[in-house]
């Protein structure tokens, strides 16, 4: 049960970082933490059903639910592609504005 609260803490940490951090790269880091927290949550809930990894050999019983693992693999890959795209946008924004602070960028683009 404590683990559940800790995972919720991680989830809130990710959201707080996305809302509060001014730096664009920090925002993407926070997005990564947010995504990881959901992945950990799913794997954690799935792992409570058994006690061995779902690798089917003879004599293996009491496996954990394999479906969450398969789904979370997909989610991890989607997360990395989003990160890559966001970072490439950041490089382009930096070339134009010479800053990574969202506050300054919004101020500059309003004056254009």
């Amino acid at each position: 049960m404590i683990a559940g609260y800790l995972i919720i803490g991680l989830f809130i940490l990710g959201i707080w970082g996305m809302v509060k951090k001014d730096n664009l790269i920090k925002k993407v880091i926070a997005l990564n933490i947010f995504n990881s927290s959901i992945v950990i949550f799913f794997i954690y809930l799935g792992s409570r059903t058994g006690s061995t990894a779902p690798i089917m050999e003879r004599g293996i019983k009491d496996i954990v639910d394999p479906l969450p693992q398969a789904l979370m693999l997909t989610a991890i890959v989607i997360g990395i592609s989003l990160t890559a795209l966001a970072l490439s946008f950041i490089i382009k924004i930096y070339r134009r504005h010479k800053t990574l602070s969202i506050y300054k960028i919004q101020k500059k683009s309003e004056h254009e």
């Binding site: 880091i29 990564n32 990881s36 794997i43 799935g46 954990v64 693992q69 979370m72 991890i76 950041i90």
Partner: peptide, 27 residues
């Protein structure tokens, strides 16, 4: 530890490897 070795390998390769590389490139 949570009995998900396949996700562990993917996270190590993708999260710790590729993500770090592209973050460092961006910086």
């Amino acid at each position: 530890y949570l009995h998900a070795p396949d996700v562990a390998i993917a996270e190590a390769a993708v999260g710790a490897g590729v993500a770090t590389v592209i973050f460092v490139l961006t910086i």
